[in-house]
């Protein structure tokens, strides 16, 4: 009996990288579209609307996540 360490390692590596990657990119998208709050101590709960550039960047992030989901569906179907 042989344990397929290579395959197990591959699942581990791929899962870790892809999960952290997608969550990171998606979070950047959320951060880009949400209002930025002033650092603690400066202003009382004031927040700044996101800039156009931030919104554009966020759209790219969300598109990347949508592509990842599409690839996931492709993996299920294929």
């Amino acid at each position: 009996m042989s344990i397929e360490w290579a395959a197990l390692g591959e699942v581990f590596g791929v899962s870790l990288v892809v999960t952290v990657g997608i969550v990171g990119v998606f979070t950047l998208g959320i951060v880009g579209t949400a209002r930025r709050t002033a650092p603690a101590g400066e202003g009382d709960g004031e927040s700044v609307a996101p800039t156009g550039a931030a919104r554009a960047g966020a759209t790219v992030c969300f598109a990347a996540c949508a592509a990842a989901v599409a690839y996931g569906i492709y993996l299920i179907v294929a």
């Binding site: 999960t19 952290v20 979070t27 959320i30 579209t33 949400a34 709050t37 927040s47």
Partner: peptide
């Protein structure tokens, strides 16, 4: 799955620390 989720959770809280949770919850 647990290690990946823990790392991702840590990352998402770090990246989003300047955002209010009510602004991000919907996303």
């Amino acid at each position: 799955a647990g290690i990946a989720a823990a790392a991702a959770t840590r990352l998402t809280y770090r990246l989003g620390k300047n955002r209010r949770s009510e602004d991000t919850a919907k996303g």
